[in-house]
């Protein structure tokens, strides 16, 4: 099987890779580029653990082909912190104990950042519906929702 040669920008870095034509972007990120922050919880778009941004749209990277990424800009959890400075969402997740096992956390953070970029003052209901595609089995979502709301409040104040 001949491979597809893809040129992208990932977390600000120009990146080229070869992938199989039917290979999901998630597998490319994890297996070829060593970006294992996006997780495969289902592979069918039902859990959100593989959430990344493609051209400023929040997507499940398991539902995108690597080949589709040609010329696209991709952002992953690995690009969220600014060097050693955590993004406010990352810090609030720690402050609120909004993670237990942590497998869903990268997906939640990417999705929550997309929410706050798009709506800096979400209601609790808006947070819950925006994040409905991110499954968490440990926390019951309570502390996650609180962390997102608190981040939004802090970022609005900043």
């Amino acid at each position: 099987m001949s491979q597809v040669h893809v040129h992208t920008k990932i977390n600000g870095d120009t990146t080229e890779f070869l992938c199989e034509a039917d290979e999901p972007l998630l597998d490319v990120l994890r297996d070829r580029l060593g970006l294992t922050g996006a997780k495969e919880g289902c592979g069918t778009g039902d859990c959100g653990a593989c959430s990344v941004m493609v051209d400023d749209r929040l997507v499940c990277s398991c539902l995108v082909l690597g080949a589709e990424a040609e010329g696209r800009t991709i952002e992953t959890i690995e690009g969220m912190a600014d060097g050693e400075k955590l993004h406010p969402l990352q810090q609030k997740f720690l402050d609120h104990a909004a993670l237990q096992c942590g497998i869903c956390t990268p997906g939640f953070l990417v999705a929550a950042k997309a929410l706050l970029d798009h709506n800096p003052d979400p209601t609790e209901t808006e947070v819950r519906y925006w994040l409905a595609g991110n499954l968490c089995r440990c926390t019951g979502y309570d502390k996650i929702v609180r962390a997102v709301m608190d981040t939004a409040a802090e970022m609005r104040g900043a």
Binding site: G45, S51, L58, C60, A114, N134
Partner: peptide
């Protein structure tokens, strides 16, 4: 149709 993530696609 689907989640926010799916809505993006």
């Amino acid at each position: 149709i689907g989640s926010t993530q799916v809505q993006g696609r």
